[in-house]
Design a protein around this nucleic acid. Structure first.
Length: 581
DNA sequence: GCCGTTTTCGGCCCGACTGTTTTCAGTCG
């Protein structure tokens, strides 16, 4: 069993143990073990199978968890999990995603009213029975109902990163099959959208038009992670993939229609509608099999996507732009942007270490970043307002800055800048004194608390932060957590104008849970003259690889390398830092 | 349940907010 699934079993059990009211420290051990395994470079299964290795050598895994891992490897579950599932239905886990309810309340609701899923919870709130329970009232009922609504809105969607991993697995399988020429993921995944609803995978080969596709589709429905087969025809198989039930559609195609199909299934729907309308004006008709003349039905293009666009008088349009938001006009006028590419990135400017809530040391992060070919990084641990993360106070910041200056003389694998992710306090003031911030090379200012202020208060708060003399950039500017928390409200145009005027950058946070700013806002900000940094907010060396999600978000925002400061070569970036704003 | 040891058990991150209370439990980050 893969690490990711082990992590899921441990986390799920920890959640149920919380509902059961078990010892918090034991629960934390389960969660900690899950976190360690999630970031571990080797498969637990491989270590368990090796006679000279012991999983207990991994910090955070002791005798208890080792036994659990052993049991999982043997039968796919473990005793405590089974015991929990016998006491509580697994559907209770979904209730934890409703804001305002925690394990204690869920346990109470289950015991008193038999509430075991979202529908039951909604009914209870509507009947105003929630308020009859101790310490619950009308306000909570309202909050829960609101939270259910927003939960339903996003249900069934998946993070881009999740889609990427699933697609990589499936495509890896398909590429090795006989008769397969090309494999490509289309849909919102290819457009780099922040969340995806399902996965569209296209497979082509010379003989895959008719019955030739059968063995490939047969292989798809037998993949080990397929939970349910939703449908299977001559050219398409549709399955639920993985525990989370991601719908995956695999389409087999003849080689000569691959490009047209890729175009068609990449979308967006709006982009395609406009494109087809334009085609008709040229006497052409476009569908998933190719581009044809209206009269006579002659094939004009189809094998390659670029040819489809070319025959419509357009340059190839990068998938990230295909939202019918001006890209077709820009393409027709020869004014498509030269979008930033992953290989343009020269450094990562937001990451955490064991000084606060990161999982690796400065040196480990530096080595991982150097291995990615970067020239520089900034270490940006939390400030003291984030007490839970052991945030840095003024004294520790000043010492840290000095320490980094020494380290840079002392054989680090790349240039390290001293930085901080400084909390923006409720009133917009910085968490640390300006003279301490002035010691640092790179100060990010971020909101981590009081996210429920109204629009005016939040705008004032951010305006004050942007006006603060030592900050260079606003971190994850809207505070959203994808599929989990809405962005906090503020007047973005005002803040973007102010940021542009004061030379404060916007972060495009590449963490797949954030992608903040999003593409549309980045585009707005750019139009106002703002510049950006794309950063991973890594808490573990492996998170540095999330940069690609930030780059696709920037591309969705029409950004070019010149808009993004961490595309600068080291010397130029240093010069940029020297110019005080 | 893990860890670190003062080798056999005690400590494990904690402050703020909310809505409910009438002094605080539960949630959140």
């Amino acid at each position: 069993m893969e690490n990711r699934e082990i992590v899921r079993l441990l986390t799920e059990t920890a959640d149920l143990m919380e509902i059961a009211g078990e010892d918090g420290f034991r629960i934390r051990s389960y969660r900690n073990a899950a976190a360690v395994i999630e970031g571990y470079p080797e498969q637990m299964g491989a270590i368990l199978a090796s006679p000279e290795r012991k999983v207990t050598e991994i910090p955070g895994i002791g005798k208890g968890i080792a036994a659990v891992l052993e049991e999982i490897a043997q039968r796919g579950s473990f005793e405590r999990r089974d015991e929990m599932l016998a006491r509580f239905p697994g559907s209770l886990l979904e209730l934890l995603k409703i804001q305002g309810l925690g394990p204690k309340s869920i346990s109470l609701l289950y015991q008193h009213h038999g509430v075991k899923d979202i529908d039951g919870l909604e009914r209870l709130c509507r009947e105003q029975k929630l308020r009859e329970l101790p310490r619950m009232g009308a306000k909570l009922e309202e909050k829960v109902l609101r939270s259910i609504e927003s939960y339903r809105k996003r249900a069934g969607r998946f993070l881009l990163s999740y889609g990427h991993h699933a697609a990589a697995e499936i495509m890896g399988e398909l590429r090795n099959l006989p008769g397969v020429e090309r494999v490509e993921a289309a849909g919102s995944l290819r457009r780099g959208k922040e969340t995806i609803g399902d996965l569209d995978i296209l497979v082509s080969g010379p003989d895959l038009a008719g019955d030739g596709a059968a063995p490939i589709l047969e292989h798809v429905i037998k993949l080990p992670k397929v939970e349910e087969v939703l449908g299977q025809g001559a050219n398409k198989a549709s399955v639920k993939y993985g525990f989370e039930g991601l719908q995956v559609d695999v389409r087999a195609l003849a080689s000569d229609s691959f490009g047209a199909a890729l175009q068609y299934f990449t979308g967006s729907k709006e982009h395609n509608v406009t494109l087809r309308t334009n085609a008709l004006k040229r006497g052409l008709t476009l569908n998933e099999y190719g581009l044809f003349t209206v009269e006579g039905g002659q094939r004009v293009a189809g094998e390659n996507e670029a040819d489809v666009y070319a025959k419509l008088g357009l340059p190839w349009i990068p998938p990230e732009l295909r939202e019918n938001s001006g890209e077709l006009e820009a393409a027709a006028a020869g004014r498509l942007p030269g979008l930033i590419r992953p290989e343009d990135i020269r450094g990562d400017l937001h990451m955490h270490t064991t000084e606060t809530d990161g999982k690796a040391t400065l040196r480990e992060m530096a080595e991982a970043a150097a291995a990615l070919g970067y020239q520089y990084i900034a270490i940006t641990d939390h400030s003291k307002a984030l007490a839970m993360a052991n945030g840095l106070d003024e004294q520790r910041v000043v010492e840290f800055a000095r320490h980094v200056r020494e380290l840079n003389r002392d054989g680090l694998p790349l240039r390290v800048f001293s930085g901080l992710e400084c909390d923006i306090l409720r009133d917009g003031a910085m968490d640390l004194a300006e003279d301490a911030l002035a010691e640092l090379d790179w100060v990010i200012a971020s909101v981590h608390s009081h996210m429920n202020l109204d629009e005016s208060e939040m705008t004032d708060r951010l305006a004050r932060a942007v006006s603060s003399p030592n900050i260079r950039i606003l971190g994850h500017p809207t505070g959203r957590m994808l599929l989990h928390r809405e962005p906090f409200p503020f007047r973005f145009d005002e803040i973007a104008s102010l940021a542009a005027a004061r030379g404060v950058l916007f972060e495009i946070n590449a963490s797949p849970e954030r992608l903040d700013l999003n593409g549309a806002m980045a585009r707005t900000a750019r139009a106002k003259g703002c510049r950006f940094a794309i950063s991973t907010d890594a808490h573990h060396p492996s998170h540095l690889e999330n940069m690609t999600y930030g780059v696709s978000t920037a591309r969705r925002g029409w950004l070019e390398a010149a808009d993004v400061v961490n595309t600068l070569p080291l010397a130029d970036f240093e010069a940029f830092l020297q110019r005080r704003r």
